Simulated assay, not measured.
Amino acid sequence: MNRRLRIGLIAAGGLVLALVLAAFIATYVVLQPDRFTAMLQSRARAAGLELTLASPASPTLWPKPALELDGMIVRANGAGAPLIVASRGKLVLPWHTLLGGDARISRLEIEGARIDVDAISDYLDTLPPRPSTSGAILPTIDAGFRVSRGTLTRGNQLLLSDVDIDAGRLANGRPFTLAFAAHTADTTPYSLDLETTPTLSRGVLTLGDAKINVASASRFDATLHGEATWRGAADVGASLAGRVTREAGAPYDIVLNVTPANQRDPLYIALKLDGENDHTDLRIPPLALGEWWGGIRAGGRPTLPPLLGTVEAKTLDVGGVQATGLRIRATPNVPVPAATAPAPASTAATP
């Protein structure tokens, strides 16, 4: 290698090194990690929360401008147990931030998050109640967010593991997507995907052109289309229809309607399932059903659930017990299932 070429390579390397060093310094000067950390903490305080980090945020430029966060802890002001504990986080920023643009976050990513349901419930109980006559609201989320490798707990009890949540920006009149996946305590996988366009007008929130998919690998897959409305309090309405496919049986057509509460009737979910040999037509009061389940969990006297309608199944196999020719009917005067036998029925332990 001649002397001129060697000098040229050294000069080029020095120039690249100078540019990298300048970009590194500019990243700290322009991004100003402290201002974004202060902005996050300010927003948390406005919501009655306290955000702490194990170490100051560090900026990065690749693949997009971002701030790396280590050891995130979110707890309610004055509370002991944290709502969320995450090993790592990242604030993804728009490129114009490098040119001195507004301090805006385009995406929040959290890794290894532990979310405590009890702590969140206690925090929600501290929020001022909304009047029952107030209309619907749409809590705008300016940035999309992602939670990966998370766990959902109730105190020290594990509810869900491998939690993965990916959501886009939530705003009035903009398409919104949400993907949720997790494993239950017995390692059963479940997933939920939602696509809709939320519209808030005159106190009425409408989820238009909604598509919902709920699935469990190698077990079932359900897809529903329709729309839903919320006018505040228990004034919820929905009309959805779709199909359920199963690994262990024939598919079902499904129709789901939600009727809001009124002066005479509570909030009801009407569920219809029509299959080759099975038919279900039920009205479910979700609030009463929740109270019934809470009483069962609290050790109360076992009772039948508050359901209305009919269930017809050619065969039913639950918990090692097999039933054939099953027909269950619950009338409005007796809002609990009562077995009838218009067709021969038998029960036997599964071999």
Results as ranks from 00 to 15, higher is better:
A182Q: 12
L83A: 07
P251W: 02
R246K: 14
V336W: 15
H183V: 06
R246F: 15
E291N: 09
L256I: 04
L69W: 03
H225W: 00
N2S: 13
A46L: 09
S346I: 05
T223H: 07
Y268K: 05
G173N: 03
R219M: 14
G242T: 01
I165Q: 01
S201Q: 10
D102Y: 09
Y268A: 06
E195K: 00
D116R: 05
I120A: 15
G299V: 00
P59T: 08
S239V: 10
T245I: 06
A222K: 05
T133K: 02
T259N: 11
N77D: 13
G294T: 00
Y123W: 14
T60N: 08
F36L: 10
T52A: 09
V214E: 04
R35I: 13
H96N: 14
A86E: 08
K314P: 05
S58W: 08
D281T: 06
L240P: 12
P59D: 08
L93N: 10
L108I: 14
R297T: 05
L99W: 09
D278T: 02
R6L: 11
L51D: 10
G226D: 09
T310E: 15
S55G: 13
L31K: 07
R231G: 02
Y28D: 14
E109W: 04
K211C: 00
T151S: 12
F220D: 08
N156E: 14
P129E: 02
R301T: 12
L282H: 04
R35L: 15
R169G: 00
A215V: 07
R43K: 11
V16T: 11
L127H: 04
R3I: 13
D253P: 01
G89W: 11
W62I: 14
D186W: 08
V258N: 01
G275F: 06
P198D: 01
P286R: 03
P335Y: 03
L108D: 01
G135V: 06
A343L: 06
V20I: 13
R146L: 15
V85R: 12
A11D: 06
S191N: 15
L152R: 04
A38C: 05
S55E: 15
W293E: 11
Y28E: 13
N257W: 04
D235L: 11
